[in-house]
């Protein structure tokens, strides 16, 4: 800039950006750093801690279903599309359509959270929670594991839980063997998942080549060892949890213009700015999921 000593000062300083939108971008900057740290940590822990002999859990080890994740991705993408349309229609002065698309966005956000809730439920049912997953069966944890499995098997035999009749014999046999103290924790795990599916770290010293109970009935409510399972659950819940909180926040933000439309006397083209800012936030949340989905479910 030249030495503008005698310049007549301009009228307004600053950028041709409304304060709100500028602040939204700045807020997104902080969000980018937040999710960078969150996702970066996951990548580092996942790649740094594992080895070829002791790999990171596969999706099916931890009851993660790829197509559900993909479907949820679709839900979020569609909602992002709808937000763009909502803003577009407000912009060209068709507030009715704008509000309709906002409503659809809100619904899709709820669908996303609903699906997430179902996914979380399956984790809770299988005890795949930070600090509660069984791993490292050589340590004191191994005996806790055997005790837990014994309890679960008893429940099945007593009829409190149901398993496929094909698996019933194996359940009963395992229960007697555990009661007779014949099996080491690793061997119990082998009987549960089947020798083919035992992870290298959990392989007993003399594998028996048995068919596991879970191979006979994949829904049997019996715990098994997941190496790195606690770390996996920590990362999974931290990342998807914070993402879900952001979705929830987005729903609250989108509710505001809808309330205005239906109760407060209708949306005006000026509300486009609010919707645009809310949209920026929503698209960012979408982008985060665009990365979380492959990182958690596919890669």
């Amino acid at each position: 800039m030249s030495h503008a000593v005698h310049d007549e000062p301009g009228l307004k300083m600053g950028m041709p950006l409304p304060n709100g939108k500028l602040a939204m971008w700045l807020f997104l900057v902080t969000e980018i750093m937040f999710f960078t740290a969150l996702i970066g940590t996951y990548m580092i822990l996942r790649n740094g801690q594992t080895s070829a002999g002791n790999p990171w859990p596969q999706p099916h080890d931890v009851h993660l279903v790829e197509w559900i994740g993909a479907a949820n991705t679709f839900v979020l993408i569609l909602s992002s599309f709808f937000v763009v349309l909502a803003h577009h229609y407000l912009h060209i002065n068709q507030p009715g359509k704008g509000a309709a698309y906002l409503g659809l966005t809100l619904v899709l956000g709820c669908v996303f959270l609903g699906v997430k809730a179902i996914e979380y439920k399956s984790k809770f049912e299988h005890g795949i929670l930070p600090g509660r997953v069984f791993e490292k069966l050589d340590g004191p944890r191994g005996y806790e594991y055997v005790a837990k499995v014994k309890e679960q098997l008893k429940d099945i035999v007593d009829g409190k839980h149901h398993v496929d009749s094909k698996a019933m014999d194996a359940v009963k046999q395992l229960l007697t063997e555990i009661t007779d103290n014949k099996l080491s924790p690793k061997q119990v795990n082998e009987r549960v998942v089947g020798t083919k599916h035992v992870k290298p770290v959990d392989m007993p010293s003399n594998p028996q080549n048995v068919t596991g109970i879970l191979e006979l009935d994949s829904h049997a409510p019996i715990s098994y060892s997941i190496p790195w399972g606690n770390l996996w659950a920590s990362c999974y819940f931290a990342m998807t949890g914070f993402h879900a909180l952001h979705v929830l926040g987005g729903l609250v933000i989108f509710a505001a213009p809808l309330v205005k439309h239906f109760i407060g006397g209708g949306l005006k083209p000026e509300d486009g700015l609010f919707v645009e800012n809310a949209g920026l936030y929503w698209h960012f949340v979408d982008i985060v999921w665009i990365f979380l989905f492959p990182l958690l479910y596919l890669v």
């Binding site: 700045l26 900057v29 902080t30 969000e31 750093m33 937040f34 960078t36 740290a37 969150l38 940590t41 822990l45 801690q49 929670l129 930070p130 600090g131 509660r132 606690n230 770390l231 659950a233 920590s234 990362c235 819940f237 931290a238 914070f242």
Partner: peptide, 28 residues
């Protein structure tokens, strides 16, 4: 704006380690 979110993540991790049993900072 650039640095604080990273601390926030670290604090949340430690909070989770402390209260929820997560293992971000607990060695194998």
């Amino acid at each position: 704006a650039f640095a604080l979110p990273v601390l926030t993540v670290a604090l949340v991790f430690q909070l989770m380690d402390k209260t929820m049993g997560s293992t971000f900072f607990l060695p194998p």
